[in-house]
Design a protein around this nucleic acid. Structure first.
Length: 480
RNA sequence: GGCGGCAUGGCCAAGUGGUAAGGCAAAGGACUGCAAAUCCUUUAUUCCCCGGUUCGAAUCCGGGUGCCGCCUCCA
């Protein structure tokens, strides 16, 4: 069974065959660090983290590089607004980015290079482009000449004429072609700068990724990823300048994730309709957010809404409740002999790995993969009382494998349920002590078979969203 | 205007030629003193519309409608 991935370059799913057997080089565009990240960044992070984990699980040795763009107009603007050096801004948001990504259970990439730490490589690459005739100096800027590179726009599948016809940009007089883009930008007074053969300036947006990917992954590598909105111009330009410089193919597989939408519209800074990761994590558990992001295929748009997050939470709770039941059974003393009712669980359990792999091999279909987990959950619930411990142990092992790849379902079930309960308890209009007092009162009433009073207490608490759960061990409660 | 994508039950969401996964929500039943959870059952003869190809299409082709994205910084 082989992995198939959708390649933006070819527009179709292709069998994944790395350039070097057993090894994968993967470069993912990180963020420009000028503000806190929003849910769109979270999705890109989670998607490529999942891909990184899955490639690792398939036995590949993955060199995963994710950059920080730590010099850019927006960073400079913000620094000016706050009256601080640009690197105060970039360092602050690099830190916040790291915090946010870690909270979403993302593994650290192999390398996390910063643009400003690769100025020498960037200058070297620009010089190479000038030497080969693909770039020219215009005042204190250096531009890439799109005319000279034949395959320009092959990634985004457009043509130059149409682009110009629909262009909304003002044409810079110094550009030989309106679509030429900056490799190096001369600095204006007061702006941060680095010395270069073309005077003081800073790198253009795209060149840093070419320089850094080349340094850590070589001139040709396997996977380049990012959000769909990076296809043009960023990735198109990156590919053009890199291939122009090396004369070799840049990337074998281009992978792009879909957007996070709000009411079917793209979430973005410019539209102002975004939620930061920090805001969302105040209201939802990080694992719920990650689970939500993986509940749709990575290339589809996903709609962020309260209802959808609540649905995701309910679904994840269902899985964890079943797993908590498994834990309890394993801690108990009894170990029933296998009955016929275990056949289905046994089948679902043994088949999970295969089904999971099939789903993931088909362009990382996490939605389908999670569907298989739910099938297992039903089988668990059905036969839990009769299942022998050995089988339940297998169930745990299978789920653990899934958890390792998806980065969800990795919590201790009881702890997850406790986390959700604590979160819900926070917003309650009744104190925990009061609930417990009423439960005790009700226990007395029940003992006396005073069910009228018992039900009255249940209803009273239910009106405050507290659900009572009676069991042989006593009464517990949860927030509805 | 150019290019690209999407349209599946009340909601979310898989499914690229073989007769519609899964989750949430809802209803009925079992269980319970009553509940909750759980289990069982039910909820799309049908996948935006109209044509076509095919023994057979949600899946392929043509046309239409609607929504979205990129073309400007953007994950």
């Amino acid at each position: 069974m082989s992995l198939r991935v959708y390649n933006t370059l070819s527009g179709s799913k292709e069998e994944f065959v790395p350039l070097t057997p057993g090894k994968v080089g993967m470069y993912v565009c990180g963020v420009t660090v000028y503000d806190n990240c929003h849910i769109g960044h979270a999705r890109a992070g989670v998607v490529f983290d999942m891909i990184y984990r899955y490639l690792g699980a398939k036995g590949f040795e993955v060199n995963y590089v994710r950059n920080y763009t730590d010099i850019d107009d927006k960073i400079i603007n913000r620094a000016n607004r706050e009256g601080v050096p640009y690197n105060v801004i970039s360092e602050r948001y690099i830190h916040e980015f790291d915090v946010d990504m870690a909270r979403l259970f993302m593994l650290l990439p192999t390398h996390q290079p910063k643009a400003t730490e690769h100025i020498a490589e960037i200058i070297g690459l620009i010089e190479r482009l000038i030497e080969r005739g693909f770039a020219y100096q215009a005042g204190s800027d250096v531009n890439f000449s799109v005319d000279k590179y034949e395959s320009y726009l092959k990634l985004s599948k457009r043509n130059l004429e149409d682009m110009q016809a629909g262009a909304r940009i003002e044409v810079d007089e110094r550009k030989q072609h309106p679509m030429d883009f900056a490799l190096w930008k001369g600095s204006k007074p007061g702006e941060p700068f680095w010395e270069s053969p073309w005077g003081q300036g800073r790198p253009g947006w795209h060149i840093e990724c070419s320089a850094m990917s080349m340094k850590y992954l070589g001139e040709t590598f396997d996977i380049h990823g990012g959000g769909k909105d990076l296809v043009f111009p960023h990735h198109e330009n990156e590919m053009a300048q890199t291939e122009a410089a090396t004369g070799k193919p840049f990337v074998k597989y281009w992978i792009h994730n879909g957007f996070v939408n709000i009411n079917a519209e793209k979430m973005s800074k410019s539209l102002g309709n975004f939620f930061t990761i920090k805001e969302v994590l105040e209201r939802y558990d990080a694992e719920v957010l990650r689970f939500f992001l993986l509940s749709a295929h990575y290339r589809s748009p996903i709609d962020f809404s309260d209802q959808n997050l609540k649905d995701a939470e309910a679904g994840l709770e269902r899985i964890y409740k079943a797993l908590a039941g498994v834990d309890e059974r394993l801690q108990g003393a009894e170990d029933p002999a296998r009955t016929e009712e275990c056949a289905e669980l046994e089948e679902k359990c043994q088949g999970l790995a295969t089904r999971f792999t099939e789903a993931m091999d088909d362009d990382f279909n996490t939605a389908l993969a999670l569907g298989h987990v739910f099938d297992l959950v039903r089988a668990i619930n059905k036969c839990l009382p009769h299942a022998p411990k050995a089988l339940l142990g297998q169930v745990q092992a299978e789920v653990a494998t899934v958890a390792t790849v998806l980065g969800v379902l990795d919590s201790k079930p009881a702890e997850f349920l406790e986390r959700i309960k604590a979160r819900k308890t926070e917003g309650m209009e009744i104190a925990v002590e009061e609930i417990e007092r009423l439960i005790a009162e009700r226990a007395e009433a029940r003992k006396a078979k005073d069910f009228k009073k018992s039900d009255q207490i249940r209803d009273e608490l239910l009106a405050k969203n507290i659900v009572l759960l009676d069991s042989a061990q006593g009464t517990t409660w949860q927030v509805k």
